[in-house]
Design a protein around this nucleic acid. Structure first.
Lengths: 127, 127
DNA sequence: GATTCCCTTTACGTAAACGTAAACTAAGGG
DNA sequence: CCCTTAGTTTACGTTTACGTAAAGGGAATC
């Protein structure tokens, strides 16, 4: 059976962040680990949420945005208005990702050009 | 002949930021507009740089990173060591973009799933 | 039983990226 | 000549996302 719970430092190591950071995410309402006495005990679900936060950070998402993403995970037990708001939020996030995809394509092209110019400059330097 | 220079408020409108923000980028060394008396006069090149900054922001780049990207634009007049450092920086940025590309793909899938669950929950609510 | 870890809370500090307000200048219109 | 409309500098304020002590609890190990 694979490990089913995690300590704070295990997760910190895995995601290359500090325990302080993980506790901060909890303060901000993005995580809700169980407790065994005083100590936090993280479930697989908590780990999934943390993974989402870290991935969001790489894409420039604020913690508030990542929090919204986490809340998209369990749409049950919501009334119709909330569900509609969720759908709208999902569409908004999708648009943002599409924009980022386009931005990345442009940047990749520009970096490729920069690389060529750079290599040319190096050749010119040699002579 | 298309417009060849721009005022600060023109650029602010175009990129949906404030003049304060543009001046701040100048303070940080990311822009170097000409002056006509006291007023800043932005060239097409300045505009390209600003566009790069704004795109970088959408991808979560810090201003320091965007500054580095701008400096990749003109690799001439650099010695060999600097050029090698530039090439390394370009490769690093490319890796980062590749990671972001993968992150976006995962997020898109997850959002699609969330959307399905959400729509299902709405159907269940109706009944 | 003292040391060593790993965990905890509380709280002040900090860097980045601007926002906001004050006080001023310079150009153009009525 | 006054007013309005950009633009300018200077400077302090604010939010986000943590960093960094300080002070301590609890279990294991020497």
């Amino acid at each position: 059976m694979p490990e089913t719970t995690f300590t704070i430092s295990e997760l910190a190591r895995e995601f290359d962040i500090t325990p302080r950071t993980i506790r901060f995410y909890e303060d901000e309402g993005l995580l809700n680990p169980a407790r065994k006495g005083m100590q936090r005990v993280y479930s697989k679900k908590d780990r999934v949420h943390l993974k989402l936060i870290v991935r969001g950070k790489r894409l420039g998402f604020s913690l508030a945005e990542s929090k919204a993403l986490i809340e998209m995970y369990d749409p049950s037990s919501q009334n119709t208005d909330q569900l509609q708001a969720l759908l709208d939020a999902i569409d908004l996030s999708s648009e943002r990702l599409a924009q980022q995809l386009a931005d990345i394509q442009i940047m990749k092209d520009e970096l490729a050009n920069a690389k060529k110019r750079c290599q040319k400059a190096m050749r010119d330097n040699k002579k």
